[in-house]
Amino acid sequence: MRSNKSYNKQLALLTAALLVCFLLNISLGSIRIPINEIVSGLYGSAENKTWQIIIQDFRLPKAITAILVGSGLGVSGLLMQTLFRNPLAGPFVLGISSGASLGVALVILGSGLFGGILATYLVSKWSIVIAASIGSLLVLIAVLAVSSKVRDTMAILIIGLMFGSITAAIVSVLSYFSTAEQLQQYIFWGFGSLSNLSWNELTIFFGLYVIGILLAIFSIKDLNSLLLGDNYAKSLGLNLKQSRMVIILSTSIIAGTITAFAGPIAFIGLAIPHLTRQIIKTSNHRVLLPAVCLYGSIVMLICDSIAQLPASDYILPINAITALIGAPVVIWLLVRQRKMMF
C-alpha cells in the first residue's frame, strides 16, 4: 500500500532526527564537546579524560533518561487518550503522579513526624524513588481494582481524578505543617529532573520501561479496535475488561517509573500524541505508537538541551521548559491545521 510506505519513510526520517538530537544533546552543556569526540567517547576512547567522564557518567545517562522519559510519557498519554476517547487525557489522569507525589510528600514533608535523625536518613535519593513508586503503585492497585468492577470506561477517568484530589488534599495538609526547607525540597522534586541517575538506577528504570512498552505493543490491535468505540470493539471479539486492564497496567508502569526516577514531568504526555497526530495523519496505532516514541524522545532531548542553557552553569527546571517550548508548538500546529486530529 502506498500510504504504508509513506509512513515508513516518515518513521525513518524521525529516527535519523532522533540520532542527531541525541548527539547534539550530549555535545551541548556547560562545556561543549565536539561531535566526533562524542562518538569516540561513547566507545570509551575519548582523547580528553574529563570529556570521557562527562560523557560516560553524566551526559550519556541523562540523554538516555530523556529518551526514556519522552517516549514513555508520549506512549502512556496516547494509551490514555485512546482508552478514554478523550483528547485531554494524559499519562497522569489515573492519579499515578498524584500517588507518587503523596509518597514523596510523606517522606519529605512528613519526615518531621519521624524525628530529626531518621529524617536525614529518610530523605535520600533512593527513599524518594521508593516512596514515589509505592505511592503510584498503591494508586495503580486501587484503579485496577475499581476498573475490574466498573463497566463504564468514563467512570474510571472520574475515579482517577478523585484519587488525584484526595492525594492533593493530603499534600496540602502536610505542607501546612512543614518547614520552609522541607517545602522547598518538595517543590524542587516537583520541577522534575533528568540528571543524576546512576547507571544502576538507569538499568532498573530501563527494565521497567521495557515491560511497560511491551504491554503497549501487545495492546496495539486492541487500541485500534477501541477507535471504533467500546461496543464495536466488543463486536470484534475484544475482551474489553482484559484489554482495559493491560492498557492501564502499561500506562501505570511507564508513568509510575518515570515519576519515580525523574519527577512528575507534565505536559509531554498530553502534547506529544497531539503533535504526532498533527504531523502523521492517522490514528492507526501501528504507525502512531512508534511515531509517538520518536517524537517524544526528540522533544525531550531538545527540551533538556535548552534546560541546560548551553555554555552556562545554570540548569532550568525541565518541567517548566517542556511546557514553555512545547505549548506554543502545539498551539501553532492546531491553528495552522484548523482542525484537531483525533
Binding site: 485512546t82 477507535l227 468505540g229 461496543n231 497526530r277 492517522t282 490514528s283 492507526n284 483525533f342
Partner: peptide, 8 residues
C-alpha cells in the same frame, strides 16, 4: 453511535 476517531 459516533466513532471515537474518524482519523483513519
Amino acid at each position: 453511535e459516533q466513532l471515537t476517531s474518524k482519523n483513519l
